[in-house]
Design a protein around this nucleic acid. Sequence first.
DNA 1: GAGATGTGTCAGTTTTCTTTGACAGGTGTT
DNA 2: AACACCTGTCAAAGAAAACTGACACATCTC
Lengths: 118, 118
Amino acid sequence: MTRDPVPDPTGDELLAVLAALGNPHRLRIVAALSEGGRNYVSRLARELRIGRPLLHMHLQRLEAAGLVTGTLELSEGGKAMKYYEVTPFSFALTPDLVAKAARTITDQEKETVKESAE
Amino acid sequence: MTRDPVPDPTGDELLAVLAALGNPHRLRIVAALSEGGRNYVSRLARELRIGRPLLHMHLQRLEAAGLVTGTLELSEGGKAMKYYEVTPFSFALTPDLVAKAARTITDQEKETVKESAE
DNA sequence: GAGATGTGTCAGTTTTCTTTGACAGGTGTT
DNA sequence: AACACCTGTCAAAGAAAACTGACACATCTC
């Protein structure tokens, strides 16, 4: 019953995850999706009592960090519904992991260009 | 060789930790202290190539989250030196932990009064 | 058609975080 | 005394995040 060893995250990855989770709303969002299972935006917004645009933004950040996944589905009626669910993740957050990850932090962090160019 | 089970952090604690580590500088600071051992502010600032006031601020945040500890010591000469070192920490960052922690988040988060009053 | 539900985005405000330069104080050495 | 090092704090500027209201567009139901 031992899991495959999870590869250490890069500095940027870890940073994205930590920054994404380091926010009350986003922490609650992950919790809600984790406990209640997949859910669609409008409903989740009601349950968490926050505005949709705001939730939308937070979900983007979480998805960018790889913590949740969104899928646009069509209900029987043909109504568009965007379902989100948590991506199983697991990090052993210790000084050691931090030390390792810190070695691979790219200063820029911005510039979506880089990858395509180079 | 099994460790004592670490108690689950409260929502606020976890939040503080994640928010504290979700920053490039602070991640590097923890890494530096973890690898190089204890160090004092001015030296650490030089090594990380950031200004002292800035480092000072980041160290505060890390200390507030319980990730590092500062000790003001007097060198033989009587010179004041503030040494910082990492506090050993370990969190199994998973959707489950997040779900548990989310239940105990205090909305306010501000107001240092609360504790004294009540 | 009107009203309820779902999707998404945008612009602008507000708030928070980050960063810097300047200042004040201390000790020890040349 | 002048210099190099240590500590700390503050205010102001700059940048990034968070938040809100309004809009546009779909589908289903009454």
